[in-house]
Design a protein around this nucleic acid. Structure first.
Length: 572
DNA sequence: GCCGTTTTCGGCCCGACTGTTTTCAGTCG
């Protein structure tokens, strides 16, 4: 069992202990243990072999034994014992907003509710009112929470779907029967939430390819198997459609199955205007087909500039392609020269300043902005001014030792409910950059929230707003805020906007990126990294930025260090 | 359960909000 898996088991044990109403500090010990394992720099198996597990902070005798057991036998007796006490569905209830372990435990013990559907019915029948501590509002909120979960059922975050798709694509490519292969659909378009995986293959032996496909070892169920199309459900629960076509059909199939549906509809209309017919098999003039070897050829045949897959949402890209006004140099990962918004062990990060810097250097970045939390973020071990100054010293010291790399001193300062900031201006003035974020009091009216954030953005020391809507995909809606107005203010005051690259955030949304670009507001692609591997999520931010039509010049952190320092100086 | 320039027990990040109560428990960040 690998680190990630071990951490997940420990995390689940913490949840089960919570359900059992165990000592809260014991629960936290398991959570800490999980985090410690997950953020291990060293090889877990090596640590076990050399009997050094307990030397890791947060792992004691007991946890070390459990981890060893998990790695060596793939299971833990204690974990199995805990799981036996609560049915699966009871754990699932915890994913409902506003329902924690205490309430779930009562629902299970008093009403014998064992799953979300049972809970839903009980709410409709007003059975919860009988229990002390539960009222009408609670029932309403639970139902709302269930609604929200249902809305997102069967959807997956981009990285999860991407990983599964890539694994499967690699498996298929290893067959000599597969000539061309591409991941298509919403994954290829870099959408932030993915419903299923589409793969397009060209082959002279479609039946063989289908056999190989349905024999994929990580298949849970085969839904359909034909000569051109087969569908399976993976063990991870993701649906996969495979299309197999001939080599000549391949570019057309790829275009068609990349979509979007709306984009395809307009494309077919354009073909029709030229007396042509476009479908997944080809482009036809009467019964004669127009030969195209690549997607680019198809666009050319329709007198359009090439449209990158990320842009194919029918949101103006076809008109722009007709007018030859599409951005030609969409941002790429290699364009990023540095990045902001990174946490260290000073606040709630899992890795030290040194480790974060080392990672950034390995990604060939030239600068890294450190922005630990401010004092109001107690839960995240936010820094008081004296600790900020200590960190500055550490950064200064490390900077003198670094060649061709610079650490920028920043903060992720809390925006307090009245729009004021969690540090005095005198302190803010001394940071290289300031990210201002909302972490509290989400339930404000849109007007009040917009005012609150606007006030923060207007503070002359603030560089940008962090995760501007606070959304967590599939978990929580963002707070209500008028983003267009925020972008307008950013434009007026010469500020930047953050594109938080965390796959569950991807905040601001790609649609807002487009608006920011139109207003000349630079977008900063930030990782919001809480560990070294967290910096790698920048690639997802790049995907969203591309989707939002951002070219290299529209992204703040494609600028070289010298330019960035000049830009940041304007905030002093 | 983990930790300790406090060595074998006592402390472990805090505060706001909500909905339930009528003084507070549960949840969240």
């Amino acid at each position: 069992m690998d680190k990630q898996k071990v951490a997940e088991v420990l995390e689940e044990m913490a949840v089960l202990l919570e359900l059992k109403d165990e000592n809260p500090f014991k629960i936290r010990a398991f959570q800490n243990g999980a985090r410690a394992v997950e953020s291990l720099e060293e090889d877990l198996e090596k640590l076990i072999q050399e009997n050094r597990l307990t030397s890791v902070k947060g792992i004691g005798e007991h946890m070390a034994k459990t981890i060893k057991e998990l790695v060596e036998t793939e299971r833990s007796k204690e974990h199995a014992q805990l799981k036996k006490e609560f049915p699966e569905g009871v754990l699932a209830m915890l994913t409902i907003q506003g329902l924690g372990p205490k309430k779930v435990k009562v629902l299970y013990q008093k009403l014998h509710l064992k799953s979300i559907p049972e809970l839903e019915k009980a709410c409709h029948d007003h059975k919860l009112l009988k229990i002390e501590g539960f009222g009408e509002k609670t029932e309403e909120n639970i139902l709302k929470g269930i609604e929200y979960l249902k809305k997102n059922i069967g959807k997956h975050l981009f990285p999860k779907a991407q990983e599964e798709a890539q694994k499967l694509a690699n498996y298929l490519s290893s067959s000599s029967k597969v000539k061309h292969i591409s991941i298509a659909g919403s994954l290829r378009r870099c959408k932030d939430s993915i419903k299923d995986i589409d793969i397009v293959v060209s082959s002279d032996h479609p039946q063989d390819v289908m056999k190989i496909f349905t024999a994929y070892p990580f298949t849970d169920r085969i839904l359909a198997q034909g000569d051109t199309k087969s569908s399976i459900i993976l063990q991870s629960g993701i649906n996969v459609d495979l299309r197999v076509v001939s080599d000549t059909e391949y570019p057309f199939a790829l275009l068609y199955f990349t979509g979007s549906k709306e984009h395809n509809t307009v494309m077919r209309g354009i073909a029709k205007d030229k007396n042509l017919k476009l479908n997944e098999y080809g482009l036809f003039k009467g019964t004669k087909s127009v030969p195209c070897k690549t997607e680019a050829d198809i666009f050319k045949a329709l007198e359009l500039s090439y449209i990158e897959p990320e842009l194919r949402e029918n949101s103006g890209e076809i008109e722009a392609a007709q007018a030859k006004k599409l951005p030609t140099d969409l941002v790429e990962f290699k364009d990023l020269k540095g990045t902001f918004h990174n946490h260290t062990t000073e606040s709630d990060g899992a890795n030290t300043l040194e480790q974060m810097v080392e990672k950034a250097m390995s990604l060939e970045l030239d600068y890294l902005g450190i922005s630990d939390h401010s004092q109001a973020a107690y839960y995240a071990n936010g820094l008081k001014p004296d600790r900020v100054k200590k960190q500055w010293k550490a950064i200064d010291h490390l900077n003198t030792k670094l060649k061709n790399f610079k650490i920028l001193k920043g903060t992720e300062v809390d925006i307090l409910p009245d729009g004021s900031l969690d540090f005095p201006d005198s302190l803010l003035a001394e940071f290289d950059f300031v990210i201002a974020s909302v972490h509290s009091k989400f339930k404000m009216s849109e007007k009040d929230m917009t005012q609150r954030i606007t006030k923060a953005l207007k503070n002359k020391h603030v560089t940008m707003i962090g995760h501007p809507t606070g959304r967590l995909l599939f978990e929580r809606e963002g707070y209500p805020v008028n983003l267009l107005e925020l972008v307008n203010v950013a434009s007026d005051y010469g500020k930047a906007m953050e594109l938080n690259s965390h796959p569950a955030r991807l905040d601001i949304d790609w649609k807002i990126c487009k608006y920011a670009k139109s207003k000349g507001v630079p977008v900063s692609i930030n990782p919001d990294a809480h560990r070294t591997s967290g910096i790698e999520v920048l690639k997802f931010g790049v995907g969203i930025a591309r989707k939002g039509w951002l070219a290299k010049k529209d992204v703040l952190n494609t600028r070289p260090l010298k330019e960035i320092e000049k830009f940041l100086k304007s905030y002093h």
